[in-house]
Design a protein around this nucleic acid. Structure first.
Lengths: 232, 232
DNA sequence: CGACGATTTGAATAGGATCAATGGGAGTGG
DNA sequence: CCACTCCCATTGATCCTATTCAAATCGTCG
């Protein structure tokens, strides 16, 4: 890894409390690699060889069973994925592929575990990160079980809108079919859900969406801190 | 807490690697309490004051939003719940109530966090536990998104059957309405799903279920290690 | 321009939810 | 011990949401 890359990685929350020597040791055998769009990085069922950190781009976590496939999450910078598998030294429960060209840090499982053992500050960071991931999935699960498809879409739009500066425009950074899978519906149904939201000020043009009546959308979506707020 | 109780708690995976002094300190202000059925222990949105450990009985974790309610999980001995909220010092994302009369260990959040800081072995146990919880929710999420209601029921029966000794009989330790919510369906639909499974050797009598054709049930359910196997 | 993939639209279907009514224990009180 | 009650579970009928299959449209890229 280049010195520039190393200092960039160093700044991540997960690593910033770590002691220098431990950090150096851990990154010793790590890769920082750029993958083109649609590269498969890991496959569910494989044993966890690396912890992954998304530096740039976006990664789709997905899973299959019995011929069906669904998107579990989209991971954006700067976040880790499949941390739990690494810590338990188990197989991955999800596959991962790049959505777009992405830069990814790969840290060998053994190095992460060793660093965890020898660096209490890192251990605390790991736990915070892992607990955050856990709570994110719980929220996803609540979202899926407690809301209809249209409500899920509305809330997702509101969330993206807030994340992207709340200026009335939302840009989707993945195709609609991926968004559909992420929200637990078919592409056709997503298209119809967008139509349903039209009277609530949702104007779709390609992957750019204008929200012209946030108040109305809010009434429909009924956002809930304990589902939608990622900082909680 | 009584000495008997303390030694019982001591044997739990989560605590067995802990140093004695740390264990004593942590349990200093802990309660071991028995609750009657249908007692609400925690409410989503409240701040995490205690880590809970189910010693006997069973606990339902549930969540509400916008007038709807769903069961997130049933926690059985010996397992913890809402560990992530405790570690992040955040609010609970789920509510909890006893399904039946239950004995529950309650450890104040501060004590858990202090013990985590001062005892590396405990820290490792915590991480293993938390990672296990995370993976359990991921599996639930895959289960919900990748399977139909009937398939979810079939797989749940197979899982319970294996857990309960695989002798052809399964006993449900909660009402069917709770099972329905757990599987993400209505009670009516659960009832119909049981009927659908009748040709596959599923005979329901109250909360006792006979499985007379496991091979056929397996073909329908297509169990998947990466969803159904809790040890993976 | 043409081709391909992604999205949208339409029609039919299936899966699940809702509403309403009935059956069936478990527990209570006479 | 029996009748009553209450709650849970089941069944039936209907409605609604979402999926499926098919076709048309849009956009992008060569």
């Amino acid at each position: 890894m280049r010195p520039d890359d190393i200092s960039e990685v160093r700044k991540l929350h997960l690593f910033e409390d770590m002691q220098d020597s431990n950090f150096q040791t851990m990154l010793n055998a790590a890769y920082l690699q750029t993958f083109p769009a649609q590269s498969e990085l890991i496959r569910e069922g494989d044993s966890a060889d690396f912890l992954y950190v998304v530096m740039e781009g976006s990664i789709e976590l997905f899973a299959k069973s019995n011929g069906r496939e669904t998107t579990m999450a989209i991971v954006r910078p700067v976040n880790t994925f499949i941390l739990a598998a690494v810590l338990k030294d188990a197989v991955y429960l999800m596959s991962a592929r790049t959505v777009e060209r992405s830069r990814v840090l790969m840290i060998p499982t053994d190095n992460v575990r060793t660093a965890f053992e020898s660096d209490p500050d890192f251990a605390r960071s790991i736990v915070t990160e892992l607990a955050g991931c856990y709570r994110a999935v719980i929220k996803d699960h609540k979202n899926l079980k407690l809301r209809s498809a249209v409500e899920r879409l509305a809330n997702r739009l509101i969330k993206y809108h807030a994340e992207q500066g709340a200026n009335g425009v939302v840009e989707l950074f993945h195709d609609k079919r991926t968004l559909a899978a992420l929200l637990g519906m078919t592409p056709e149904n997503l298209s119809r859900a967008f139509n349903t939201l039209k009277p609530y000020g949702v104007e779709v043009k390609g992957n750019c969406i204008k929200l012209t009546d946030l108040a109305a959308l809010d009434v429909l979506a009924k956002p809930n801190q304990l589902i939608d707020d990622r900082t909680v």
